[in-house]
Structures are given as C-alpha cells and as structure tokens.
Design a protein around this nucleic acid. Structure first.
Lengths: 188, 188
DNA sequence: GAGGAAACGGGGACTGTCTCCGTTTCGGTG
DNA sequence: CACCGAAACGGAGACAGTCCCCGTTTCCTC
C-alpha cells in the first residue's frame, strides 16, 4: 500500500514548470535537447530535474503524454467521420506530420513501437497502439487493408516514412507522397 | 594546380590504421562511436585523427568508401543476372541488410540522399546514387516500377524501411517483409 | 647528417550527463 | 505561531566526449 501523500507545493510547481519547458525544448531541439539547459530554463537545479525524471526518456514521455492522448483521441474522431480506409490514412498523415514538426515526438513514438525495449510499455504508448489497432482492424474489416499485417507494423512503417521524409527536408508534401506510396502497398 | 606531394610515410601509416579501426568501431558501436577512442585504439593522438579527418562524417565516409563502391558494383552484377524488377528488389535488400549489420553505414547512406546537406556530394554518394538510378531506370523501362518516382525517392524509402525494421529488432525477416510491402506500392 | 617542413600527440577548454550531499523549505503539530 | 522532521532543492563535481592548439618529434631532401 504505497501511501500516496500528495506532492509538496514547491515540488508540484517545479514538476509542472519542467514539463512546460521540456516540451518546448524537445520540440525545438529534438530529443537530444540539453537536460541541464532545460533545468536552467525552468529555474531549477539539475538535481531537481533528475529527481523528478530519472532519465531523458521519462521526461520526454511526461512532456508529451497529453499530445499522445490527443493523437489517440483523434483516431476515434476520424473513425467516426470517414470510411475505414480513409480514416487510417488520414490519421497516419496527421501522426507523421505532427511527428516531424514536434521533433521530440518522433523518438517517443518510435520507442513506443520498439521491440525488446525492456517492458516499459507506458500508458501513452498503449493508448497510441490501441488507437492504431482499432483503425487497422476497421480498415481490414472493410477490405481496405491487407490482412497479414498488424497495427504495430503499420506504426513502424509510418515511422519509417517519416525517417525517409526527413532525408528530404521533412516537408509535408514528401510525407504525404511517401505515405501514399506505402499505403498503396498495404492495400488489400 | 595543387602540388600533390605524397603523404609522409608515418602519415600514410596512421591514416590507414585509423580507417581500419574506424570501420570496426563504427560497425560495432554505430555512427556515434567515440572518436577519441578510435584514435586511442589506432595508437595515435586525437590531434592526428582530427587532422586527417576534420569531423566525424569525413572519417565515416572514408572508412566505408570501399564498401559503398562494392555496393554500387553489386548493382551492376545483379542487373546482369536478373530481370530489371527483380534486380532492383534484390539490390535494395542487400543494401538494407548490410546497412543494419554495419551500423555506421546507415548514417552514411542516409546522408548520401539527404536534401539540403550543403553540397558535400561525395564520390561514394554519387556512385551509389548512380547505381540506384540505373536499376530504377531499367525497372521503369521494363514496366516493373511506377514512373513517377526517382531513384533518390527509392533510396530514401529503403532507408525508411531500415528505420522501421530497427524498431522491430532489425532482423532480416523484418527488413525483407517491410521492403516487400513497400515494393508492392512502387509497382507500375 | 643537418635543416626545415610535415606530422605528431596529449593537454586543456568546452559541453553535456548524472550523482551526491549539505542546505533550504514546506506543512503538520502542540 | 514556532518548531521539527521529512521532503525537496540546487549546484559542485566526477566523468565522458569533442575538438583545438602548439611545443615536440619524425621524416625527407640535399
């Protein structure tokens, strides 16, 4: 029974401040933004940062859980609006585009679908995977997507498309084009 | 006319030694292997390393030019043996597999097809691109590949497939599977 | 074998990560 | 409201990596 004594006021304040600053820093400088720098900008010592977030991944994850949740929610919106095949494509496009713009997000999404990443299946990874699974299942049910692939494959391939687009300066049009080429191959 | 006085014997020795050690180190630890460590293992000071190779990229490139050349040559072999469509797929597979096994190679291939990477179109990048262009043109001529993509797109997408496979522990079978899904989408 | 150019090498400035521990702050209690 | 213990802080410092600088050594040439 872990007694869940609420955080002290100052701790909560610092925690929040760190999250805000981190989200900004990761978006701007990518997943390798300097952690000491984030601490500094948040007006705390680096010890404080590392106490709240034992490593870079933990911070990255905490900084983007809300965005991940929004992405997951968006999947259901799209599923309600569009035909299954369309919905999947639309969602993957949003995912890919968002992933390039907010640079730290890509790493996070990547590690969400990484095999052998020692458990660490976090809540937000699960919600993204769940959303993808629903869209994929629907698309397969509607005969718009081949049946021999699963949702994790799709997420990984989307991640790959983003990597490919990054080589081409990461503009939206490349993402869309490469994604549509890929989807061509994933049709039923 | 830059006077090309030959390198001094000790310089040439160190240069070679560095290349050997670097190829090993990059293969083992990836593109971010410690340069000082490479210098140490080669039995030279770090100053010597940085004099011969002004930055990590230069060393990476020099360490793998022969492998890149071999890859380019392999393209022509395959073109002679197989039907155009097959040859392209076979070559991309070898490329992708090799790229995962020798970790530093991926970064190098990636930057060879990176847009806006400030000129730096090196010899080995050019030979790979040339090889790809020949295979792609042949495949398109044979109606085995859609006409609205070019060889750089193909290389980028192959790079993306490797990234996707890496998320899945980078085993050959994932590479082959993801690559075949992609090629499905690239058919004419 | 002597002289000068070429090459060496490692010390050190700098940046970043992460830990440790003395100090400060909070919040519950009498 | 003043006290105290626990909680949280923060920054110094150990460590690792990159890269430069410059006094020293090595090679080549005559």
């Amino acid at each position: 029974m872990t007694q869940v004594r609420p955080m002290r006021a100052d701790a909560r304040r610092n925690y929040q401040r760190l999250l805000e600053v981190a989200a900004e820093a990761f978006a701007e400088h990518g997943e390798n933004a300097s952690l000491d720098d984030i601490a500094k900008r948040a007006g705390v010592g680096s010890g404080t940062l590392y106490r709240h977030f034992p490593n870079r991944r933990a911070l990255l994850e905490a900084a983007y859980t809300d965005r991940m949740a929004a992405l997951a929610a968006r999947a259901d919106e799209l599923a309600a609006e569009l035909a299954p095949g369309e919905a999947l494509v639309a969602w993957l496009t949003e995912l890919a585009v968002g992933t390039v713009q907010v640079r730290g997000l890509k790493a996070l999404l990547g590690s969400a679908v990484t095999d052998g990443d020692s458990a660490a299946v976090t809540v937000c990874a699960a919600s993204i995977k769940g959303a993808a699974a629903r869209l994929v299942a629907a698309a397969q049910g509607a005969g718009a997507l081949r049946g021999d692939i699963d949702s994790v494959d799709v997420l990984r391939l989307a991640h790959g498309v983003v990597s490919a687009s990054e080589l081409a300066d990461g503009q939206d049009r490349h993402i869309r084009r490469y994604l549509s080429l890929l989807m061509e191959g994933l049709r039923a």
